[in-house]
Amino acid sequence: MAVSTVLPGAGRRARRAARRPESSPMERAQRLTFWPFLTPALVMFVLFFAAPIAFSGWLSFHRWDGLTEVKSRGFANYVSLARDPVFTTALKNTSLILLLGGGLVFVISFAITVVLRDMADRNFIRYVLFFPVLVNPLVFGIMTGLLFRPSGIVNFLLSHIGISDPPKWLGEQNLMTMIVAVSVWAATGFYTTVLMSGVEQIPASYYEAAELDGAGAWQRFRHVTLPLSWDVVTVCAVFWTISTVKVFELVLVFGGSVSGSPPPNTYTSALYVYEAAFSTNTARDFGIASAAALVSLLLIAVVAVILRRMLRREAVQLS
């Protein structure tokens, strides 16, 4: 009597093979070319993204000024960050740009989108609004400094309407307000363009039906425009969240207009990392800079994930 021996797992593999449809020659060729095409991008990702993050993670547990010997510090860098009021202020300023600036950007961008939706020359206006995205943020900082300096154009115009004592626009107490305002000004064109690309996909018949039902402008926006462009809004919200961790040039330019370096109460997380690593006023410490960068990256990642979950909606099919 013959006894058949079945290897463990052989039955599962046979069932999967039976269920799997036979692949075509094109599919087999695509599988063969998968790794040759993917490998260059994967190598670039590892070299310029994964490896630097891993090195920063290792360096965050050490002390190093770039010249002397690397010294282990354990979690001391993270403890120092928790006790550093400047780093706390930097996180608060980054959060201010994220929340207040983001709210203003989306309100203004949606308002412009609703106005431009029915305009005949909206493409030209969209190009004009998008132009600031092509300009380096340093240029915005310099332009704003020229406009709002004590002898600038803004104060000159205010003096002609009877305001002889205008606010100190570039004073230390007003710098964060100016930074948020310029950030909103520079980003509005980009987000208007992205939102318009989503709003333009909404069929005009939806608006006509809502108008026939007696819906006003606000009701059409609330019940038609916003729900049907929600996916685009979600993507824009994540983009803005990620971009706030990189706000650096504006603070550096505005701080230079007050003194040799930006005031500590205007620091953002990106500027804190820069000052910790390359400051000429204090000892350089790439360990502290790496720890601050990783903490900022972690917080932004958490906020982005929370936003994605909060803004998640069922997909709407447009017909």
Rank of each mutant, 00 (worst) to 15 (best):
Val3His: 08
Thr5Ile: 15
Pro8Met: 05
Arg12Asp: 06
Arg16Val: 14
Pro25Gln: 07
Met26Trp: 08
Met26Asp: 10
Glu27Leu: 13
Ala29Cys: 05
Leu32Lys: 13
Trp35Thr: 01
Phe37Val: 09
Phe37Lys: 08
Pro40Lys: 10
Leu42Met: 15
Phe45Glu: 02
Val46Ser: 12
Ile53Asn: 11
Trp58Phe: 14
His62Ala: 15
Gly66Pro: 11
Leu67Lys: 09
Thr68Phe: 06
Arg73Ser: 09
Gly74Ile: 13
Phe75Thr: 15
Asn77Asp: 07
Ser80Val: 05
Asp84Ala: 07
Thr88Tyr: 00
Ala90Met: 07
Asn93Met: 05
Asn93His: 04
Thr94Arg: 02
Ile97Pro: 02
Phe106Ser: 00
Val107Arg: 02
Val107Glu: 03
Ile108Ala: 01
Ile108Asp: 01
Ile108Asn: 01
Ile112Arg: 02
Ile112Phe: 12
Ile112Met: 09
Val115Tyr: 14
Leu116Gly: 10
Met119His: 11
Met119Gln: 13
Arg122Lys: 11
Tyr127Lys: 13
Val128Phe: 12
Val128Thr: 07
Leu129Pro: 07
Leu129Tyr: 12
Pro132Phe: 05
Pro132His: 05
Val133Trp: 11
Val135Arg: 01
Pro137Tyr: 10
Val139Trp: 03
Phe140Glu: 03
Ile142Ser: 06
Ile142Ala: 06
Thr144Lys: 03
Leu147Ser: 08
Ser151Ile: 03
Phe156Gln: 04
Phe156Arg: 05
Leu157Gln: 11
Leu158Phe: 11
Leu158Met: 14
Leu158Trp: 11
Ile163Phe: 08
Asp165Leu: 07
Lys168Arg: 10
Gly171Arg: 05
Met176Thr: 11
Ala181Val: 15
Val182Asp: 07
Thr188Pro: 06
Thr188Ile: 15
Tyr191His: 14
Val194Trp: 02
Met196Gln: 13
Gly198Phe: 03
Val199His: 03
Glu200Val: 14
Tyr207Pro: 01
Leu212Trp: 04
Asp213Thr: 08
Arg220Pro: 00
Phe221Arg: 00
Val224Ala: 02
Val224Lys: 01
Thr234Phe: 00
Thr234Asn: 06
Val238Tyr: 04
Val238Ser: 07
Thr244Lys: 05
Thr244Asn: 06
Lys246Ser: 08
Val251Thr: 14
Val253Glu: 09
Phe254Ser: 04
Gly255Ala: 10
Gly255Thr: 06
Ser257Gln: 12
Ser259Leu: 09
Pro263Phe: 08
Pro264Ile: 09
Val273Pro: 00
Val273Cys: 02
Glu275Asn: 09
Ala276Thr: 05
Ser279Ile: 00
Asn281Gly: 02
Thr282Tyr: 05
Arg284Asp: 00
Asp285Ala: 04
Gly287His: 01
Leu299Gln: 00
Val302Met: 08
Ala304Met: 10
Val305Leu: 14
Leu311Ile: 06
Leu311Pro: 05
Glu314Asp: 15
Glu314Cys: 02
Gln317Tyr: 13
Leu318Ser: 05
